[in-house]
């Protein structure tokens, strides 16, 4: 295994480093933006609350936003790991396979048909169902036909379904009287209007997803070796795959309900983790979770400075950062045969 960190001790140290990076990026996300705060101000906002503008911004905007970005980054990265292990396809991720777009379509179409009558609790379930249906459809379509599921079929089916869902999405948005800024939000994903209550409401589902994923790491290792080996080792593949898919739907659907479809986190982070510590999912999964959170926090902080005085949706920033990465990935020799 040609990974950067090969010993267990090195991996543990690296993990501590990743955690430190996460804490630093969370701090950066809270401190820097249109207005910069000092660490003291942030601490005072929670210890001696006076209701000043600064403290209000920190408590109602910066901290919720950082928390949301961390939760979503972590969830998207974990679902990327799960999908890549399950399909043994290095390009799989919730956005490329169209799962994010499906969840977004479900939310937008419910809002279109019934108006803004939903609580956030309802929308979470709408997103889960949307993500579930699109995941099911993609895997069914990609498996159908001669030859079963090949990597190219899966990826192309996913991207075709994603652009299908996205165009129906824009259709609904143009028909209804949603504001255009709101429309952009469902097309690219943004954490700028994070609501602490929403994030906390979703957190139990996400946490359940993370825990199940962590418990499944051994099965993921077996699954990544291929169906034949896995069955030979006594894995009940159908159930493992269904459970994996369920967790993906939970994590990707939840992320979309909170922030819209954010691309490229789910494909980049697992590769970076594997590059750091190799193919063992017992390490890849926690690394990806932490690095995913840190990445989205940094991307969100960065997106406050891309246009002077305005914010760019974080989905734009992740795309700009992620595209060179995917291009490099696709050009690598290992993928030449696909």
């Amino acid at each position: 295994m040609n990974s950067l960190l090969s010993t267990d001790k090195g991996k543990a140290a690296g993990f501590a480093g990743a955690l430190a990076l996460l804490i630093l990026s969370a701090a950066a996300s809270v401190l820097f933006g249109l207005r910069n705060f000092s660490l003291d101000t942030v601490i005072q906002a929670y210890t001696s609350y006076t209701g000043s503008d600064e403290q209000l911004i920190i408590r109602t905007s910066r901290v919720p936003r950082a928390l949301t970005a961390a939760v979503i980054g972590c969830s998207l990265a974990v679902s990327g790991v799960l999908l890549q292990a399950m399909t043994r396809n290095p390009l799989a991720s919730p956005s490329i396979l169209g799962i994010n777009a499906g969840a977004a379509l479900a939310i937008v179409s419910m809002l279109y048909w019934y108006g803004a009558v939903f609580t956030f609790g309802d929308l979470i379930w709408v997103a889960f169902i949307g993500a579930g249906i699109s995941a099911g459809a993609i895997f069914l379509i990609a498996t159908a036909g001669k030859g079963g599921m090949t990597p190219i079929k899966l990826i192309l089916t996913g991207s075709a379904l994603a652009s299908f869902a996205t165009s129906i999405n824009s259709l609904f948005m143009l028909i209804s009287n949603e504001t255009l800024e709101g429309a952009l939000y469902w097309l690219t994903g943004s954490v700028s209007n994070s609501n602490l209550n929403h994030t906390l409401q979703l957190l139990p589902y996400m946490a359940a997803g993370w825990v199940i994923a962590l418990l499944m790491t051994r099965s993921l290792n077996v699954m990544a070796m291929g169906d034949d080996v896995a069955i030979g080792l006594g894995q009940r593949m159908v159930w493992v795959k269904l459970l994996t898919l369920l967790v993906v739907v939970l994590l990707a659907g939840g992320s979309v309900a909170l922030a819209g479809p954010i691309a490229f986190v789910g494909i980049m982070i697992p590769h970076i983790s594997r590059w750091l510590i190799g193919n063992d999912h017992r390490w890849v999964l926690p690394y990806s979770a932490v690095l995913g959170a840190a990445f989205l926090l940094l991307a969100d902080t960065l997106s406050r400075f891309l246009i002077h005085g305005k914010e760019v949706p974080v989905g734009v920033t992740t795309a700009v950062l992620g595209v060179p990465f995917v291009v490099a990935l696709v050009r690598r020799k290992a993928l030449g045969q696909i």
Partner: peptide, 12 residues
């Protein structure tokens, strides 16, 4: 596939 993937990436 490479063309498709890179096209999709460049498009996004």
């Amino acid at each position: 596939l490479r063309m498709a993937m890179i096209g999709v990436s460049v498009s996004s």
